[in-house]
Design a protein around this nucleic acid. Sequence first.
DNA 1: ATGAAAGCGCTAACAA
DNA 2: TTGTTAGCGCTTTCAT
Lengths: 350, 350
Amino acid sequence: MTETHDRQAGGPVPTLATVAGEAGVSRQTVSNALNNPELLKADTLERVQAVIDKLGYTPNRAARQLRTRSSHLIGLRFEQAEEGTSNALMDRFLHSLVETTARTGHHVLLFSGDPSDPLEGYDELLRSTAVDAFVVTDTYAGTPQAGFLQRRGAPFVTFGRPWDDPAADHAWVDVDGAAGGRLATEHLIEQGHERIAWLGWEKSSRIGEDRRSGWTGALHDANRDTFGLGVRITDNVDAARMAAHSLLDDTGPHRITGFACASDTIGIGVLHACAERGLRPGADVGVVGFDDSLGAQVIWPGLTSVRQPLEQVAVELVAILHQVLSHKPIEDHGKMLTPSLVVRRSSMRQ
Amino acid sequence: MTETHDRQAGGPVPTLATVAGEAGVSRQTVSNALNNPELLKADTLERVQAVIDKLGYTPNRAARQLRTRSSHLIGLRFEQAEEGTSNALMDRFLHSLVETTARTGHHVLLFSGDPSDPLEGYDELLRSTAVDAFVVTDTYAGTPQAGFLQRRGAPFVTFGRPWDDPAADHAWVDVDGAAGGRLATEHLIEQGHERIAWLGWEKSSRIGEDRRSGWTGALHDANRDTFGLGVRITDNVDAARMAAHSLLDDTGPHRITGFACASDTIGIGVLHACAERGLRPGADVGVVGFDDSLGAQVIWPGLTSVRQPLEQVAVELVAILHQVLSHKPIEDHGKMLTPSLVVRRSSMRQ
DNA sequence: ATGAAAGCGCTAACAA
DNA sequence: TTGTTAGCGCTTTCAT
């Protein structure tokens, strides 16, 4: 941090007028020094800058916001991750978002809302002009935030495509779950697994079906059957463990040895089942999870997982946000990013 | 959300003046209706309220902030959790903080900073009067934020006691790590373990030493020796796994069967070592982690862990913050909270 | 109990 | 290139 200024102790916060007086120019000139430096004569600019540095002047946000109608704040409704699931994406995503917005002088404002009312909080922040725009993260099918914000004419970008209405014309960024499912499945094929099961969520989950479609596609491309291999369960370790046991009990022409999973939680459940049967993950059974959570990293012997490029998601989100805010025409409404595979020992035949 | 108002489509945002005109009163009366309703005659208040509801009026934050010099924003510097450790505390804490601040109409503003400069970000937000106060979370020994903010006269509360300077007179909230270590150790004693090791961090970690002191204290109170049982390692799964192996190799009069750990990451490492030696967690070996992370919840067979009352931390933090902001004398500078033990199968002898 | 005036600190528009 | 004027929407003070 540059500590050229004197104001270690509180004291009166300098304003434009303070700086102007000290530098012997008008307030407007100081304002220009900050916002349109190219308008000033070189030596004037330098003199004003010197005073700004000396006084440690920073424009008052409220005043600037009142005038420019821009708060430089991005609103994000922060929901708690479900305990017991290994879904710790939010942490990583949020950090990337804070980092990225900081690069353009924006900050992230967190707000909460009653889980039963997906719109709570948005309206008030909008009406009080507290935020310039929103990043909306929970856009699973049926959530009304996008529609609401669009009707209100509020700038926003969603992390998650508009599942219900592919023709929705709001901006979005998403990660290709089908590509992730395919990545996982093709990896298991490469590792020599003959029968590869999918352990996924209920059919009502669009994200789950998307991921699953990658598994289906990869198996079909390899001329393999999916019959009896796709299982739908709730996202918890125990359900996955039991489902894995029953799949492992199934002895067809080939045993099932590959497990592509819709989440790390499920993948971990499969690893538990393996442990209980004395099967060696990697050597005997290949398991791939989804989301590269902390759980995947710490569990023995390491869970191979599909990783979402959250840093890149944040970058795209913010880029689009800036276009939306500057009322630029958006060429592409949606930006689809591709996940990658983090290979660990749970899938390495060696 | 109450949707009494008409403003579904953008349109001009109503101001005090709009409401005043519509209600046939002065702007000031509308302002009073909001901030000092007891000053208005009942029927005036009711009439104004009706217009406010109809128009969906919400005071402009920038204007209010400019006037009252209060942004109702709490700043929090958001650092990324280390990948590969199971420390997912931030997520839970942040959610509690957002929830709690919301109850008094405050929001959380996230900012970031170069990890090499612990002060970055604070100064600018302060000078631009963007936030009313800070919550400071990384107060391990030697971090200069508290000192800096105090010199600047900025309101703040730290999550974490002032390790370096017990006489520091800023407000803080912390969780008693020693009590946590004791809880873990006493639980292992109760489960019948004779020799209980501590797997903790380097001596330079004050938090680590605090937690460890609970282990030492509990063993001394039970008239047991700690000699050779306290191990210091870095916080990762593999280091813990190896350390556990070497402790398990050690065959004294009694084998080591209890492991109290400074983190879940370390606890998980111990469980890995058990798996590799064919030892049954719970039955053969008792393991307790720290922080009740997602990893502890999903790992097989479930890792007993010391859980910090983060929800309560947030509540206390916000309560103290309000005292600080209203310049009330603070009776206690520090508030120490007690953690609890979440028992899972890794420590259940049964 | 209500209204009028002033001003928070800034920038857009215009004048010099 | 620089300065002047006005006003963003609100609340504080004072008058009625």
